[in-house]
Write a protein that binds this DNA or RNA. Structure first.
Lengths: 123, 123
DNA sequence: CCATGCGGTCTGTGATGCAGACTAGTCTGC
DNA sequence: GCAGACTAGTCTGCATCACAGACCGCATGG
C-alpha cells in the first residue's frame, strides 16, 4: 500500500496534534525569533514580528502562562526593559512543533486530479 | 553577519503570509484530505478528520465562501449526499500553502543555546 | 406503527486574535 | 525650568471564530 495506509486519517491526526499555542502564526513568529536569538526584548520582537505592541504583549502573556517563556524585567539605565527568553519547556515545545510541522509538510500530498476510490462513505 | 541577514524578520514575514484559512488545523485536515482523494462526502470527512458534524459543516461553509471548494448536493438513492471537491482556487491555495509551509518548516532554526548578539534593541 | 440510526444543518457560547487608547517616565529644544 | 515629543509597555474593548450540542428529515428494522 502507500506509505501511509490510512491516507487522510493518520495525517489528520498528526495535524490535529499540532500545538495550537505555537501554531498560531503570531506566536510562531515570536517563538521562532526566540529560538534563533535566545533572548529578545520587547521592541526587538515588535520589529521582527511586525505585531502591534498590544497584540505582542497579549501573546507573550499567553506564552508565559503556558510556561513556554520567561519574562524578565530589567532596567537599562533608568528605563525599564522586558527581556524574553524561551524556557526549557518552550524549547522542547518548539522542537516538537517544528518536527511535527516538518513531517506534516513533507507528507502533505501532491494533488491528485483523478477522482480515485477511497473517498467512499463506506468504511 | 550571520548566515541569514534578517534572521527573524524575513522568516516572520513568511510565517505571517501563511493562508490563515488553510492554516487552521481543522481546515488543513479537510483540505489535505480533499487534495488527496479529490472528492469526499460529508461523513467521510467526519471520519477522516474526527471533527464533529457541526464543526465540519461550519468549516466547509467557510472554505466554500472563500471559493476553495464546491459543495455538490447529490442523491444516493433517496438519501441526499453532500460531495465536496476542491476548486482550482482551492488547489492553488493548497499548493501555495504547502509550499510555504515546507519552506517555513525547513527554515525553522535549530535552537541556539548561547545568548549571542542580535537581540539588542538598538536597530 | 413505533423506535432507532444515519445524514446534515442550525444556533449559542466561550475563547482569542487584534488594534487602538492610555500611562509612565525620559530626553531635547526653547 | 518648562513644554513638547518620543520611547517603552500595559490595558480595555471589539469582532471574529472555533467548537459542541441540540435539532430536523428521512429511511429502515422490529
Amino acid at each position: 500500500m502507500t506509505t501511509d495506509s490510512e491516507t487522510g486519517a493518520s495525517r489528520a491526526a498528526a495535524i490535529a496534534s499540532l500545538d495550537r499555542l505555537i501554531h498560531e502564526p503570531a506566536r510562531l513568529m515570536i517563538v521562532t525569533v526566540l529560538a534563533t536569538v535566545a533572548e529578545a526584548d520587547f521592541v526587538y520582537l515588535v520589529r521582527e514580528t511586525g505585531l502591534t505592541k498590544g497584540n505582542l504583549g497579549a501573546h507573550l502573556v499567553r506564552l508565559e502562562a503556558a510556561g513556554y517563556l520567561e519574562i524578565e524585567k530589567t532596567f537599562r539605565g533608568k528605563v525599564p526593559r522586558t527581556v524574553c527568553r524561551l524556557t526549557d519547556a518552550g524549547l522542547a515545545a518548539y522542537r516538537m512543533y517544528r518536527d511535527a510541522l516538518r513531517r506534516t509538510a513533507d507528507e502533505l500530498p501532491e494533488v491528485r486530479a483523478g477522482s480515485e476510490d477511497g473517498w467512499l462513505n463506506r468504511a
